[in-house]
Amino acid sequence: MSRGEERVKIIANALVLGGLWLLLSGIYEPLLLAFGAGSVAVVVALMARMDRVDGAAPEWHLKPLAFAAYLVWLLKEIARANWAVTKVILAPHMRLRQHLFAVPVTSRSDLAQVTFANSITLTPGTITIETEPGRFLVHALSYDDATPGELADMDARVAATESRRA
């Protein structure tokens, strides 16, 4: 990272953190504002130091609108999956068919892969257990033949929100 980029990043961090402080505090007295400025300065210094140590800055290769649409779809999925697991839990005879299986991952960027893994875990009934290059290990509570298809569909939707295929 060049010197200039680093400076831009520090300023952006300070603005975001300061805004967060103002939102969360809600009290605008000189003493508390000074405390806020002080803690923002400390955190920004810590973050700059961490960047120098590992240097792995997260990259954002997502289309914002497509991502928002994906989130709406995800909420619907969560509702559906919650209902399915609720039925399993409340049924007098629980019909469990546990299975550990590999799901191929087509999205490339780290953020998209994290989104996919978290989406799998957020929908009850499936949990990402291990991430490996090109595939995730997923555990399903009541596995049936449609499960891999549903996850492949989710994967395609996540991959579609990527702005650039690396």
Partner: peptide, 10 residues
């Protein structure tokens, strides 16, 4: 694990 993710999400 799956039961625990119901309170976490819904």
């Amino acid at each position: 694990l799956h039961a625990a993710s119901i309170p976490d999400s819904a």
